[in-house]
């Protein structure tokens, strides 16, 4: 709980404080623009609040009441698409987003060539190269617990929580760990998100972008997920693949400020 409470507070202050983007630890690069990206995790239209014990605040499309105790994922290979088609790829672009760690929800990307950017591309998960290249550090450190040690590969996304069984009213836990970096059940997906307004980069400009992931989307694709039926996912396969597609669809860019 000690960890969760600050996360909730930070979530609140973020919403009230969107006019001044956090420059982050990244040094600006002279002559280029910088954008601060903030990930806001939502349940429908409500900011996600991690909650392991206080009831079942959320309801999915199947009508299951549930809460979420952990919500973590990898974003990598971020590319910014300029109106003329040029793409700026962030170097060493690996970000671990953990709802329980407010510091992880926001980061700055310097080095944007001047111009108007109309879209952003994200890889949801960690590219296969970093799954086969030996020990990694920083965001990719296995210490974050987003890694299968016995069958090498990153857990690209984790959602854990509790739900009320609609058949018998019993309380149960659910755990979705999405892994698999190659083959037909790969859970790493690239998405392209259009921006609600252009991101304008110039000499030493600081812009901000808010991206949203909607928890409810996990349960929406390819057909409505019933928590009674699918509540433990921890290996590579068609279910993880299906959930990864729906999770990837959960992202949108809700705000750009220049």
């Amino acid at each position: 709980m000690a960890v969760i409470l600050p996360a909730m507070l930070a979530g609140c202050s973020k919403d009230n404080n969107t006019t001044t983007p956090d420059p982050g630890p990244v040094t600006p690069i002279d002559g280029y623009g910088r954008v601060t990206m903030t990930f806001a995790n939502y349940v429908g239209n409500t900011p996600l609040s991690l909650n392991n014990s206080q009831g079942y605040a959320y309801t999915n499309a199947n009508g299951d009441s549930f809460n979420v105790s952990a919500y973590k994922y990898y974003i990598s290979n971020i590319k910014f698409v300029r109106e003329d088609g040029y793409e700026y790829a962030e170097p060493e672009s690996y970000h671990f987003i953990d709802e329980a760690d407010p510091a992880s929800l926001s980061f700055s990307v310097p080095g944007l060539m001047p111009g108007k950017y109309t879209a952003v591309k994200l890889l949801i998960g960690v590219d296969s190269a970093r799954n086969v290249s030996g020990a990694q550090t920083g965001a990719l450190d296995p210490i974050h617990g987003m890694f299968w040690t016995w069958s090498t590969g990153y857990i690209m996304a984790k959602m854990e929580g509790n739900f009320k069984n609609t058949d018998n009213g019993n309380k149960s836990g659910f755990s979705y760990h999405l892994g698999g970096f190659k083959g037909e059940y790969r859970v790493v997906n690239e998405i392209t998100l259009s921006l609600p307004q252009d991101l304008v980069a110039g000499n030493n400009t600081a812009s901000s972008m808010t991206l949203r992931s909607n928890v409810l989307e996990w349960f929406a694709f390819p057909s409505i997920v019933k928590l009674n039926e699918i509540n433990q996912v921890g290996s590579v396969g068609p279910i993880a693949r299906g959930l990864s597609l729906s999770f990837s669809q959960s992202f949108s860019v809700t705000k750009v400020e220049n």
Partner: peptide, 13 residues
């Protein structure tokens, strides 16, 4: 199951 010598120690640990 493990694809790299540097990743091997994580499994027994």
């Amino acid at each position: 199951g493990v694809n790299h010598i540097e990743m091997q120690p994580f499994a027994p640990i």
